[in-house]
Design a protein around this nucleic acid. Sequence first.
RNA 1: CGGGACGUAGCGCAGUCUGGUCUAGCGCGCUUGCUUUGGGAGCAAGAGGUCGUGAGUUCAAAUCUCACCGUCCCGACCA
Length: 421
Amino acid sequence: MRLSQYLITTSKEVPKEAKCISHKLMLRAGLIMRFAAGIYSYLPLGYRVLAKVTSIIEEEMNQVGAHQLLLPFVQPAELWKKSGRWGNYGEELVRFKDRKEADFVLGPTHEELITQLMKHQINSYKRLPLTVYQIQTKFRDEPRPRAGVIRTKEFLMKDAYSFCQSEKEQMTIYEKMKQAYERIFSRCLLNYRLVEADTGPIGGERSDEFIALAPLGEDRIVECEECEYVAKLEKADTGFPTSGDRCPLCKSKIRIKRGIEIGHLFWLGEKYSRSLKATFLDRMGKERYFVMGSYGIGVSRLLAAIIEQNHDEEGIIWPKEIAPFQAAIIATSPETFKVAQEIYLRLRRGGLDILWDDRDLSPGVKFNDADIIGIPFKIIIGNTFLKESKIEIKTRREKTTVKVKKDVVFQKMKELVQNAK
RNA sequence: CGGGACGUAGCGCAGUCUGGUCUAGCGCGCUUGCUUUGGGAGCAAGAGGUCGUGAGUUCAAAUCUCACCGUCCCGACCA
């Protein structure tokens, strides 16, 4: 991509609305723009990052045999009345009437719809177990959106639903999904904890949450300094502990930490299949309710969590799998413009995703832009090239530099990208 | 929804207390030209504002009063 032809607007100054690091950096790097409280659009650069995260999630979901589909965002209220959530989901549920005065909701989650879908699609145990997922915009009319993209009214979510014939089968899926989540969050370079949680308005019998550690997080967890013990603050075995209290398991000191909820697993059991009368015929020809699970990842929120844990003074430091571009090419003098172009074309032909900063600006501006955006490598063609015929490659995260000859830049870049975090 | 802060150019701010000097100013960014080119360059010339909205007080309102709208923070609530 030629930067001069791309929609990128970075900023030295921070809009005063932003208080937390990820929000500031997302605005400064020009990833998002706010239209109302908790309502954001993603600019091309932000969308690229969102797409990278999305594709990691898709890979891992497909890996565990989940099938991607797309449910409607606008949902008939009828199903919500059947499940009982029309009455008890609360004001977060946006309701409206169409021109014929029929009730609808904007989907905050999709248990009702997917259950209804499966009720019609599956009627034999031979087709089970089955897991499906979608990546889609959700709407929840939050009383107080906050911290940029961490709590918004409209957000991108991956929601998966599993349908099984028994609790035992459901347990297997639940575990597989948990492992898939662990791989997803590791690929995002997130430091997270897995804790048991409340089921909330989704309901069901148990739930587990993935919490990315971050000081601005809304969730509090209790963690032992020595042993494995970790729990949500409100579910801790010792009432309402404070830092320095004793671990209920090993009596060492515990710590309170804050974090952002990035993923949630729900053991739904028959909650929705019963209320929507979704059944299949088992081996004995007997009608049975599906045993269900649902599994969410806040995709847009993930970006904020990743930035909270991967940044420095200069800006974002994207993990290589998430970076909008793998490298930025920067020519620091007019004489090296042609060489930069040549390298850009070479690397692009080789399949690397490159941002060529071909703007007529001073080098400092280009360095700073590449840094705030968080591009993992800067390929610098300037004085060093004119003097030593060498091209420099600087690593964003480790801040190291290597110098290479022009004709091996592609090879070296492939190697660096391969080994990068 | 309770408590607090804020709203002046695309962004960051000054001016508001004590009304007139404001035909509203500064920095960044933007446009044009020339010079520059290794960590946010220099000079020159420019463009850009219903001072959140509405009503009121006054000879006179960015400035005072009231109402409303919007934004952010803390809390409650929630994924």
